[in-house]
Nucleic acid binder design. Sequence first.
DNA 1: GGTTCTGCTGAGAGCGCTCTCGGCCGTACC
DNA 2: GGTACGGCCGAGAGCGCTCTCAGCAGAACC
Lengths: 339, 339
Amino acid sequence: MSRSKPTIEDVARAAGVSRATVSRVINNVPGASGQLRARVHEAVAELGYMPNQTARALASGRQRAVDVVAVTYSPATGWLGTHPYYSRVLAGIMSVLEGAGVQLRVHAVGEAGAAEAIDAIAANVTVGAVLTNITPVLAARFHRRCRRAISMVATAASVPAVEVDNVGGAYAAVEQLYRLGRRRIAAIHGPDASTCALDRRTGYARAVRQLGLADLGVDGGDFVRENGYVAAGRLLERHPDVDAMFVACDLMAAGAVQAITAGGRRVPQDVSVMGFDDSLAAVCSNPPLSTVRVPVEEMAAAATRLLLDGEVPAGYRQQFPVELVLRESTGQPAVPSFL
Amino acid sequence: MSRSKPTIEDVARAAGVSRATVSRVINNVPGASGQLRARVHEAVAELGYMPNQTARALASGRQRAVDVVAVTYSPATGWLGTHPYYSRVLAGIMSVLEGAGVQLRVHAVGEAGAAEAIDAIAANVTVGAVLTNITPVLAARFHRRCRRAISMVATAASVPAVEVDNVGGAYAAVEQLYRLGRRRIAAIHGPDASTCALDRRTGYARAVRQLGLADLGVDGGDFVRENGYVAAGRLLERHPDVDAMFVACDLMAAGAVQAITAGGRRVPQDVSVMGFDDSLAAVCSNPPLSTVRVPVEEMAAAATRLLLDGEVPAGYRQQFPVELVLRESTGQPAVPSFL
DNA sequence: GGTTCTGCTGAGAGCGCTCTCGGCCGTACC
DNA sequence: GGTACGGCCGAGAGCGCTCTCAGCAGAACC
């Protein structure tokens, strides 16, 4: 006891009461007189006692932790360091967890051995899990093992999800470029593996068809800036008359802006650029990016709240609105929108 | 048993062995014959058994989790969502934890009640804690409660830390601008509460003095882009002949670039800009930022490895090198450095 | 005074696992 | 044959806590 941390037993002995009473006091449940309460509090303070959360979790059967599961497909360094999306997810979850006495656990799952890792995580879920960047197959597997889960994008039909109208957002983005007088509106698409990317591609295709424009879409590949840079360069080479680009995510759009200006064209005068997400990359770009705002933080917060409220019904869906955010990359607004 | 998850007891019964044997098999420790091993594995597979990590942690006395503690001083939304630094810390930790069977727990601690929160976290540390953005007082408190801790910046003398030569980095940055022919080198400083910011300020001051230049430093405030934008605007107004800016962090530098170009000047021709950190903001800016690279991921990874190796000696320091990364914001390199 | 009721309190049985310890058996050696 | 030894295996004691349940006062009522 002198060396290791004091346990509830030590407190009980010091206060001259039973473990049960100490437990009642520190958990603030009724059934202990004011007198004993004071004695216990005194002993707690004196010993510097802090309850062992692990033991508490085991005994009560409920640990309070939300798990974030991110599947990483790229090499290794991946996900968190490189894409602002994940930070936003964590920030959204955190905002709900603060003060709720619930921990946040982060799991990165490599592609190899993903199934086993998923199983292990699912088996140890407590409050619930927020699934990020997960394939439908893995999502379904997780949900089969553990119902307390919700995905940040629509995946397998059974898996609860918060989602956003990617098709409509992309459509609105193209429409906005059209409204600004652009007629050669190209697109840089994201990876086919991402349903978000596919939906945004669909929205673009639908819009250009509806507006009677040429489909100038190219594959950009993964959601990283470099790909946006390369794709934009290729695009300008192939179609020098392009006057606008709709890019599948802000990070790629930031790369596209760099490529466009590096090639001697001006943004937005010669080529307007529209991103998607409204992430840090959008406001760090120069000029700042007009973009389709995806309320990632709000979505993650909502998902977390659902988990805290209990099991989420299978197949549950909550749709969030997207919103056009106009900054300078599509034409000078009256006042810079970011001040 | 039919409803709830199978326990080790169920597996033991199914395999016709004792709990101890099952434990030996699933933990892959010697002392079980190949025959029983097979039986147990079979039973595990059949029941879909997954060990309860909480019980395992309690029994063995060692849970395997690294805690990241971030103190948030700003309003609420704060830290993770807005500054790339934290993502990099998490990414660095993750890279070490992957496959080590160690969890990552994230704790955001508000300014109010920080002391209590710190105590609670310290009492439940297992592998150790990585302290981020913490004040010396809180860091010392944490370290007093729990030795298995390491800070991402040098704080109280007793608290182990990984650190970087901010003074030298700032000095080198200014020197580089000088070497490029700049003579009116301004600075946008970070918040006084940050020791990093103070050190970078010192490095700047020392450099301009040494080089015989005017000290054109202004306070930018917190490490956010908006502050960089505003400060750069103010700077250009006050000193229209400024031909370079050394900015305390990339995020602010990205804002500064926006303000400079919005004011009709060109980067780097009219004003060179040098950031600090080499974060996502540096490569998303346009033109991409020359910056002082702080190897945050490597530092976080090293800190994590130290914790995994055991208790870190009080007062431990590990210095990491900074490195000038030259991109276009200080003059066109031969080839774009980011391709 | 006897009964019932209520409110505190502590004993003790777990939660699901790890890990020590001792028993048992088979082999080796004298 | 007797002893020593080493490899397997299971019994059982925890890990630090929660929570039920029974006991025991003291108050209230007839």
